[in-house]
């Protein structure tokens, strides 16, 4: 019992961080699946979502601020795609990637300008910010909610992709971009929808993340974004269940390593894992082994 009380916090933190990485990783993996683009701005959209709540909560009640944040974030994701990626769709992939890095810096520097570079305190969200005790270990309620909410959202997303028309269009587009256009799929709608879903999940992820770790700084999106990207590659980029499982594995391993006392190496571990995976299994855990079309 004593052993559980001592070690449960690490595991809970791991699962909860894993869930938050998973919600971000889905955005990476879906966009990659369809456009073959690593959307580097994704982590910064996550940061903007945090800032929107910080500023919105000062002028309106929190139950309006949260839906507003989700709408603003989704709109931002949609606009980024329309403005920075769509005009480059026929350009070489490298150009879109550079454009994505550009968007990432634009968002970071805008945030730096708006906040003056100082950390902003994320408001406490009623109920989910409350402290609870599980088997002698004290934590915030959000830690327990995160994995459940993540699983529910992922199941919902998988259903959407398997059983709806837009889902079918997404699957077709990810299989063969040009042919699906010939088959009458409105590719722009599919791509926009992908960005909307991805940023929606990142918005939820940011809500959960910042409730636990309450400081929002302009570069706060960089680390979670990078780790979520590693999770997506680890699980096999393009695969949604892969991204989710990869994210949970990374979140849990990271916290177990911290629990063992090697705190200094927890980040190094994440990136070492990425290298090992790429050498041993370049397509990741669930990656499709399809022969490339090009």
């Amino acid at each position: 019992m004593d052993w559980i009380t001592k070690n449960l916090p690490y595991l809970m933190a791991g699962i909860s961080v894993g869930g938050q990485y998973a919600l971000i990783a889905i955005g990476y993996t879906m966009v990659y699946g369809i456009l073959r683009l690593i959307n580097f701005a994704h982590g910064d959209i996550f940061m903007v979502a945090g800032l929107v709540v910080v500023y919105a909560a000062t002028v309106m009640p929190i139950y309006i601020a949260i839906p507003l944040m989700i709408i603003v974030t989704v709109f931002l994701g949609f606009m980024v795609e329309r403005v920075a990626y769509k005009p480059l769709r026929s350009a070489p992939r490298m150009s879109i990637m550079i454009s994505a890095i550009g968007v990432s810096y634009l968002l970071q520097n805008l945030a730096l300008y708006v906040t003056g570079g100082l950390s902003q305190q994320y408001p406490a969200i009623p109920w989910i910010s409350d402290t609870v005790t599980v088997m002698g270990a004290t934590t915030k309620r959000v830690t327990l909610i995160t994995p459940i909410l993540t699983i529910v959202l992922v199941v919902g997303l998988v259903m959407l992709i398997k059983h709806t028309k837009i889902g079918m269009a997404m699957r077709a587009a990810s299989r063969d971009f040009e042919t699906s256009q010939l088959m009458g799929i409105k590719i722009n709608n599919v791509v926009s929808m992908t960005f909307i879903i991805g940023t929606f999940l990142a918005a939820i992820g940011s809500l959960l993340f910042f409730t636990n770790y309450t400081g929002v700084t302009p570069t706060v999106g960089a680390m979670p974004g990078l780790k979520a990207f590693v999770a997506a590659v680890f699980g096999g980029i393009g695969s949604i269940p892969g991204a989710v499982i990869g994210a949970f594995i990374i979140g849990i391993c990271e916290n177990i390593i911290k629990g063992l006392g090697w705190t200094t190496f927890s980040d190094a571990f994440t990136f070492a894992l990425l290298i090992v995976i790429l050498i041993a299994k370049p397509t990741g855990l669930f990656g499709e082994k399809s022969t490339d079309k090009v």
Binding site: V17, T219, T263, D267
Partner: peptide, 13 residues
């Protein structure tokens, strides 16, 4: 490390 925002495990320790 720089950029770390998760202090859960340190407090637990």
């Amino acid at each position: 490390q720089e950029g770390n925002s998760d202090f859960t495990s340190y407090v637990t320790k």
